[in-house]
Structures are given as structure tokens and as C-alpha cells.
Nucleic acid binder design. Structure first.
Length: 644
RNA sequence: GCUCAUAUAGCUCAGCGGUAGAGCACUUGCUUGGUAAGUAAGAGGUCACCGGUUCAAGUCCGGUUAUGAGCUCCA
């Protein structure tokens, strides 16, 4: 048979040859590191017999694909077996690979905790040490069912049962044939290819990812080619932990949470300074882009939420308030607003609007409350009370495309100024839970997709992830360590205006419903500040930093000069403080460095007598001596992004 | 909301049936010291909350609340 290799060269092999034979034919080195083979684009076990003329490439243990196969074998053949050895009555569910590692879902009689991982890991090492080869057996559906039924592997049974396949179920064995796993493969030809691995955590996970199903125990692990790679990965994990905004927020004294208000931020002075700086920045940009800032009530009667559709579709996430009957004349049920849109429509509805008023753009730094499930809260990233940089564009259908373009440009400028150069666009389509007719959804999905297509931005589609009132574009930015955050959103809504009876008089003199576009750039200030802290490891850009400059005196004789510098800086609008404490300069440097103050100015005898300053910047141990006036000029220039 | 874990001084944590501990931070004294921790002393705790077991409970057991890691959600 003829085999085409990736470089388009042809190789002739006898019938019945396998991927391994092919590798051997190409070279002994390749045969040694081969773990699987790709036949016509599909990964196969190395010892599968190749049928017919095909294109093929050998997967070696050194490749990304090879590592993934190794992870797969580790979970399905090694972790699963180790768990069965230690917990004979456990039942295996599924064990896929994930980024950097793998997991296996199992049902066990006794709970497995993080402390048990060592034990399981040791058992895995024992299994790997056998260096057993891994062999495959193909069986019919009945036979597969029989085997797993006899082993009481109910999850495997149901996987087979629900499969449309009728034959060729793949069973994988090790040399002793004492363990069998159902798997789509491919697997390593033998366990000697296993590199360095470590079980990392254990948690619950629903069978088939459905919260109605039983909760299984999920054991996570990570695996790499060798110890060095493993350690590198573990170090990066540590690095990510070091920039955790919850930890930095505490160290920098920015905010706290407490039991009485779960998911709601207590902003400390420095944290609130960051918040205000960011808000001023966004406010300026909104002003420059034809948005009009408004403000709407926090607590609104349920009638409005019924009319808007929130009561029906969003009730379980809303904080409901009732007025104490003893003191109130009338009983009404109110809700804390989870969104600003109905409020904005109320403003729109005051007075008659003409097509000449469109597009009309209302913006609000609206404080919204949403009752998030208890298990989902996470520092600033997921809270129950947050402020959106929200806005609603009332426009005609014809204006959708130009507004989409304007918004993307607006958003990308803001992201760039905040230090995020890259973002992806996601188009989310109709969800199951929604308002509006399918006809309206067809129209709005098409309008949005046409707009983004015509503007030429790349995007990907996320089926069923739209808002209940309309399809949306989501903007996902990438931070300094490659993590992705969904922040901006642009949501088309052909429903709400009609539900709340918002209209405009068209050129034809008749009344029409405007299209509403719900849009945000940062999403929520709380979350975005969390992202900024993690992105910058707390070392915020100069204009955002709560304390921008600290002037630290070396001896008390220079206190007057230090204060003079502070006052001059303050005159320029710089947030400057002096540190005149009776402490050594290194002590002061250490303290302000750990608070991530961007600039520390040390002042001693020579600076005072020469009217200079010694500048030290965060992240560097270099110092720079400058004339005071020159330093003031420079620092003022750095503060340029402060816009108001 | 679900699974597992955690809750001790302002922070980070030790203690795991028998009189509450450390380091840092804080206060005070000494120290005026040139770029990431000078020094000594002092003060600081209903051991998250409610209940149970026990002669005796931060310590063991149950519940509640919050937090953490995941899962499910994130309009």
C-alpha cells in the first residue's frame, strides 16, 4: 500500500502494516519515540493495521499531540486503575484530557479528599513502573455491555447504551488484563512513555455536566514530558496565584468583604481612588462620543419588571424588597434593579422622540444588584452588587451597522489605553430562555451578524449564549499572562422598546419602535478592577495608582524640603504623600514598594542642598537623580491619562 | 444551588480534649540611619455563630453563616 507522508513523499509498505511499521520504515529514532499515528487526519493507535492507501503522520511523544495522548493514557489507564485498586467499589465515569492535564470522574462510596491524592498518586506510580504495554480489543455492543455490567460499571454501561455505534467498541487492557477501560483512544503503546505527573485537586462535578444529575468526584492531574516541564508549569501556577487580586487587594488595602454583605464590596480609600480614576476616564470617553449620562432609581416596582420581561425571565436573580407593612400605607413589591435598561426607556419615554433624535445614547454608571448563587462568587470578579459602565443606544435598523462600528472602535481605544491590546469578538445567538418571536430573533441575529461581517472584524459564534432579549457581541480580552476575560458587550434588542412602548416619529410621520442596543465596555467596574490588578500584578499604571508618589525622608533635617516637594506635586494634581517617620530609608522603600507605589522619591542631605530628587520606580531598584523642576515636569507628563 | 475543604490576634499561620501561641503589623523607648525588614519593651483573642458529647471542647460530633477549589450558572 502507498502512504503519503506530511512532506508529500510516498512510501510503499506491505499490506497489514501498522503505524509502528511505518515509523520503523522511516527511521529507528522515530520508531522509538512514536506513540500514535494520524491516518487521514484521524488519530489511531500505533499498532492499528493501516488499511488502503492513506496519508499518514507519526505522532511522537515530544509533540503536543503526543503529550495529550500521554495525558489521556494517564487518566484512563493509570488514574482510573489506581482509583479502582484503592476503592474497589468505585465506579468510573469519564476521563478526558484538559489543557495542561486531565481529570477522571468517579463515583465512590467514601469521599475522596485532597489528602487522599498522595495515596492515589503512589498507586499510579506503581502502575506506571510496570511499563506494561497497552493493547486494544474491539467488541460488539452486546459484549461491551456484558463486560461492564458484570463489573457494575453503570456509567460505562450507559455510555455504551446511549451510543449509536453497534460494533467496534474499543477496550484497552494492560499486560495483566486485570483492568479494562472503554475508550475512544488512542493510547500510548506502553506505559514507559509516561513523563512527570502530579494530581492537583479534587472536586465535585455533575454526571454529564447537568446539575440535575448525581455529583461525582473529579480528580484532576497535570502531566508533562519530564520533571522540568512539570516544575515549570507548577511555577506558573504559583505566579498566577501571586497576582490574585484578592491577595493583592488585601496587601494593598484596597477593599474587603464581610459576612453581612456577601458578594458586595467594601471599598477602602485607596481602592475607591482606583475606582474613581477609572470611572472618570470612562466618563470622559463617553462624553467625547456622544453619550449622555443619566441616573435611574435603585428600587423599582415589580410592575415595571413585569412589563420589561425581567420578572418572568430573570426573577430568581433579583433581590426583591417589600416594605414593612406596619409602617407603610400601601403594600408594594419592589425589586432592586438588576439592569439599567428599563430605567433608560422611562427616560426615553418622556416627551416625543423624532427620528432626528436618533441615535440617542444614554449612559449610566448604574449600580445593579443580582442575586448570584452562593457558590459562584469570587472576589471582585463575581459579585452581587456592581456598577456597570452601561449604556443604551436607541437607533433605527439602518443605524445598527454604523453604531456597531463606532462601538468597536470606542471599545478598542479604551482597552488599548488600559493596557489590553488584544481582544476577540464572540457572536452569541438566541438562548432557550428568551422573549420575542423567532421572526424577531431571525431579524436581529442577521442584523448583528451582517454588521460585524461588513465591518470586517473576525468573530466566532457562540450558539445559544445570547441575552434573553437579543443576540450579542461579546468582547474577550487577553491579559498579561494569557488569560481571557469577557468584558465588553453589545446586545441588540428588538423587544424591549415595544414591551415598554418606546417609540419615535419617523420621516413618514408614523410611529416606530427604535432598536435598543445594550452596551458596556468594561462590564463592571468591580470585575474590571480585579482584572487590572491581576494584569498588572498590582503595579497599576501611574494615572490609576491610588498613591502615585511617596516622598521618603532619610533624615529629619530634610522634612521641610520633602513637604515642599509633596505640595508642589499636589498642586499638579498628583496623589503624593510624605513619609517622615523615624525609620530607615530601606524600611520605607520596602513598605511603599510592597504597596506598589509607582514612584518613591528619597530625600537626603544632598538632595536638599542641591534641589534635586532621587527617584525610584516600582519594579526597579535603579535610582535616578533629577533636578526638582525636571522631575515635576516628567511626573506631570506621566499623569496624562487622568482626563478630568 | 451542588461536592469537598476551610474558619484561632489587623495580616500569614501553628496548636487538635486539660490555664490561648509565633512571625509581621500596632503602641512606647532608644536609634538620624542613603534605596526591600535597626533595636528593646508593651498592648492585642467569647479560638465564625448555634447546639451536642465530656469532669473538662479552638480541639470531638451536628447544624448555620461565610470563604476557597471545582461543578452548574454568569441574563
Amino acid at each position: 500500500m502507498k502512504i503519503t507522508l506530511p512532506d508529500n513523499s510516498l512510501r510503499e509498505l506491505p499490506e497489514g502494516s501498522s503505524g509502528y511499521d511505518l515509523a520503523k520504515d522511516i527511521g529507528p529514532g522515530l520508531a522509538k519515540s512514536a506513540v500514535a499515528v494520524t491516518i487521514n487526519g484521524i488519530q489511531k493507535d500505533l499498532h492499528d493495521v493501516i488499511e488502503g492507501d492513506v496519508s499518514a503522520s507519526i505522532i511522537t511523544i515530544d509533540s503536543d499531540e503526543g503529550i495529550e495522548i500521554m495525558r489521556h493514557t494517564l487518566t484512563a489507564q493509570v488514574l482510573a486503575r489506581a482509583v479502582k485498586n484503592i476503592y474497589p467499589n468505585s465506579k468510573l465515569a469519564i476521563g478526558p484530557t484538559i489543557e495542561d492535564g486531565f481529570y477522571y470522574d468517579v463515583e465512590t462510596e467514601e469521599a475522596i479528599s485532597i489528602d487522599d491524592l498522595k495515596k492515589i498518586e503512589d498507586e499510579m506510580i506503581k502502575i506506571v513502573k510496570t511499563k506494561s504495554s497497552i493493547t486494544k480489543k474491539l467488541v460488539s455492543k452486546e459484549e461491551a455491555l456484558k463486560i461492564f455490567k458484570s463489573q457494575k460499571e453503570t456509567y460505562k454501561e450507559s455510555i455504551i447504551d446511549e451510543s449509536e455505534q453497534i460494533s467496534d467498541f474499543q477496550l484497552y487492557y494492560q499486560d495483566d488484563k486485570k483492568f479494562v477501560d472503554l475508550c475512544r483512544g488512542p493510547h500510548l503503546p506502553n506505559l514507559s512513555f509516561v513523563g512527570a505527573f502530579k494530581l492537583t485537586k479534587v472536586s465535585g462535578a455533575y454526571w454529564k455536566g447537568d446539575s440535575k444529575n448525581k455529583m461525582l468526584t473529579r480528580i484532576y492531574g497535570t502531566a508533562w514530558k519530564n520533571e522540568k516541564e512539570l516544575n515549570k508549569y507548577l511555577t506558573t501556577l504559583d505566579e498566577a496565584q501571586k497576582r490574585d487580586h484578592r491577595k493583592l487587594g488585601k496587601e494593598m488595602n484596597l477593599f474587603h468583604f464581610q459576612d453581612e454583605a456577601p458578594g458586595m464590596v467594601f471599598w477602602h480609600p485607596d481602592g475607591w481612588t482606583i475606582y474613581r480614576n477609572l470611572r472618570n476616564f470612562v466618563r470622559k470617553r463617553l462624553q467625547d462620543n456622544d453619550y449622555i449620562e443619566v441616573n435611574t432609581p435603585q428600587v423599582i416596582d415589580r410592575k415595571l419588571w413585569e412589563a420589561s420581561g425581567h420578572w418572568d425571565k430573570y426573577r430568581e436573580n433579583m433581590f426583591i424588597t417589600e416594605i414593612d407593612e406596619e409602617h407603610a400605607n400601601e403594600k408594594r413589591v419592589n425589586a432592586l434593579k438588576p439592569m439599567n435598561c428599563p430605567g433608560h426607556v422611562q427616560i426615553y419615554n418622556q416627551g416625543i422622540k423624532s427620528y432626528k433624535d436618533l441615535p440617542l445614547k444614554y449612559a449610566e454608571f448604574g449600580l445593579c444588584h443580582r442575586y448570584e448563587p452562593s457558590g459562584t462568587m469570587h472576589g471582585l470578579m463575581r459579585v452581587r452588587a456592581f456598577t456597570q459602565d452601561d449604556g443604551h443606544i436607541f437607533c433605527t435598523e439602518d443605524q445598527i451597522e454604523s453604531e456597531t462600528g463606532l462601538f468597536i472602535e470606542f471599545l478598542s481605544n479604551i482597552y488599548a489605553d488600559l493596557g489590553f491590546k488584544d481582544f476577540d469578538i464572540k457572536l452569541s445567538t438566541r438562548p432557550e430562555m428568551r422573549v420575542g418571536s423567532d421572526k424577531t430573533w431571525d431579524k436581529s441575529e442577521k442584523a448583528l451578524e451582517d454588521a460585524i461581517k461588513n465591518l470586517g472584524y473576525p468573530y466566532r459564534i457562540d450558539e445559544g449564549d445570547g441575552a434573553f432579549y437579543g443576540p450579542k457581541l461579546d468582547f474577550v480580552l487577553t491579559d498579561a499572562i494569557g488569560r481571557e476575560w469577557q468584558c465588553g458587550t453589545f446586545q441588540l434588542d428588538f423587544n424591549l422598546a415595544e414591551r415598554l412602548d418606546a417609540q419615535y416619529v419617523g420621516e413618514d410621520g408614523k410611529k416606530h419602535y427604535p432598536v435598543m442596543i445594550h452596551r458596556a465596555v468594561l462590564g463592571s467596574f468591580e470585575r474590571f478592577i480585579g482584572i487590572l490588578i491581576e494584569n498588572y500584578s498590582g503595579k497599576l499604571p501611574f494615572w490609576l495608582a491610588p498613591q502615585q508618589v511617596v516622598i521618603a525622608s532619610i533624615i529629619s533635617d530634610v522634612n521641610d524640603y520633602s513637604i515642599e516637594i509633596m505640595e508642589q506635586l499636589k498642586k499638579e494634581g498628583i496623589r503624593a504623600e510624605v513619609d517622615l517617620r523615624n525609620e530607615k530609608i530601606s524600611y520605607k522603600i520596602r513598605e511603599h514598594s510592597s504597596k506598589k507605589v509607582p514612584i518613591i522619591i528619597a530625600i537626603g542631605k544632598s538632595e536638599k542642598s542641591e534641589k534635586t530628587v532621587s527617584i525610584r520606580r516600582i519594579g526597579s531598584s535603579e535610582t535616578e537623580i533629577l533636578e526638582l523642576n525636571e522631575a515635576l515636569k516628567q511626573i506631570k507628563k506621566e499623569n496624562i491619562l487622568v482626563s478630568t
